[in-house]
Write a protein that binds this DNA or RNA. Structure first.
Lengths: 229, 229
DNA sequence: CGACTTTTAAGTCAGGCGCATGACTTAGAC
DNA sequence: GTCTAAGTCATGCGCCTGACTTAAAAGTCG
């Protein structure tokens, strides 16, 4: 009986070790810069094919890394959404996008790698789709998006889509940068994850509330002279 | 005499071909996802070591790709800075950050690759430093940063640095996204590069002008309990 | 014209890669 | 006690990589 537990625990531990090693290596060297072999070795596995065995492929591995983190983030966000429910303040819903992730990264301690891992995964053409899809499955995040939309009824749909993309990039890369600074002992604009999230929430709120300029009919003259168009 | 010209022109053409092939491949598959061999082959070079021969290393190649584009962008920006000189409008100087790059990408035609290449280069830990340093050498960009700072005298220094980083990420990744959509024939939030730049300028202006929240004294308790605020 | 340099081509080499395979260990079923 | 299946290890194969070497064009110049 204890044997069974011990064994399955050992297996789970192996998987966790691989996931942690992969998360770190991917964050440090990018997705394409790390081989499955390296990950196995770094995780103390003598086997070349440990990653393939446990996760099927690099793709499955990445998915598992993302899933391991999205759960806790989702929990935090669900609570936060419940708390601000009913609000029509843009800032409240922006905070629901930003704070839960910051809090989870804080919980992970220093050095954490998931922030930089996310940035790498989203940058890589081969994995961006996977990661995006995983993130979209978060109900509380979808809900937050809807509420944000409700707060900004006058924003034209294309602009809304545009700014949603901007917000996504901004969140991921700002946190990756903060994480990098923390890990490297460099001076950070903000002292803590929470403060970094506050600064990011400020900026994103300004971004969402920015007035929309009607596109000018004609672009400005070009580098080489007049630009007929 | 014509021989000499012909020769140096042929060599220049070879270099250009390699640079274009590399720019495209890097944009498509990321820095680490492309070998020097592939680049040489794609450029029609029979030689394994064409890249090494002409550019010394992958690093030198990346530098050359960036330099080829920064020149024209700098020209456009210099003219634009001269045009808005004396302005104290945040939006004018934000536009000086955004528009010149958009215009150059427009000039490159569809499909262009430099937008996505830049995003890849900035994402890769091994190259981000090189690319950043190249960009920092643009006098008109430095000038624009100073003017923007002059327009926002009340912004605390850490917040300014923070938002500068955000702006950099936002510009690069938004344009990369727009370029990807254009190249893939997907629907784009904005129809043209100029309109995309307008939307980005709107958003960035809002970001820079956003009010600064004083950081709350104590970070919130962790995920597992109530989070007073 | 003929010696010389630059550029391109072609081939070799050691090493790392993913993948497939078979052996060994161990826990649990019977 | 034996058998089964999961997890781990070790090895080999074909492929690709960067680095290096050699040779052949192409162009330059005395």
């Amino acid at each position: 009986m204890s044997g069974r537990v011990a064994r399955s625990e050992r297996v789970a531990a192996t998987r966790e070790t691989i996931l942690s090693a992969a998360e770190r290596l991917f964050a440090e060297h990018g997705m394409a810069g790390v081989s499955n072999r390296q990950i196995g070795q770094e995780a103390g596995q003598g086997n070349n094919t440990a990653v393939t065995y446990h996760f099927g492929s690099k793709e499955g591995l990445v998915r598992a890394i993302v899933r391991r983190r999205t759960g806790p983030v989702e929990d935090v966000r669900r609570r936060m959404v419940a708390r601000v429910d009913g609000s029509s303040e843009v800032r409240d819903w922006v905070a629901c996008m930003v704070e839960p992730l910051a809090q989870h990264l804080d919980d992970l301690g220093t050095p954490s790698w998931y922030g930089r891992f996310s940035a790498q995964a989203l940058a890589d053409p081969a994995f961006r789709g996977i990661v995006s899809r995983e993130a979209m499955e978060s109900p509380s995040l979808v809900r937050t998006g809807e509420e944000l939309r409700r707060c900004l009824p006058d924003l034209p749909a294309p602009v809304r889509r545009e700014r949603q993309d901007m917000a996504r990039h901004l969140i991921v890369h700002t946190f990756a940068e903060h994480e990098r600074a923390l890990a490297g002992g460099e001076p950070t604009p903000r002292g803590s994850w929470h403060e970094a999230a506050t600064g990011l929430t400020d900026a994103l709120t300004g971004l969402w509330l920015a007035p929309v300029t009607a596109p000018s009919a004609r672009p400005e003259p070009s580098a080489t002279g007049d630009r007929a168009r």
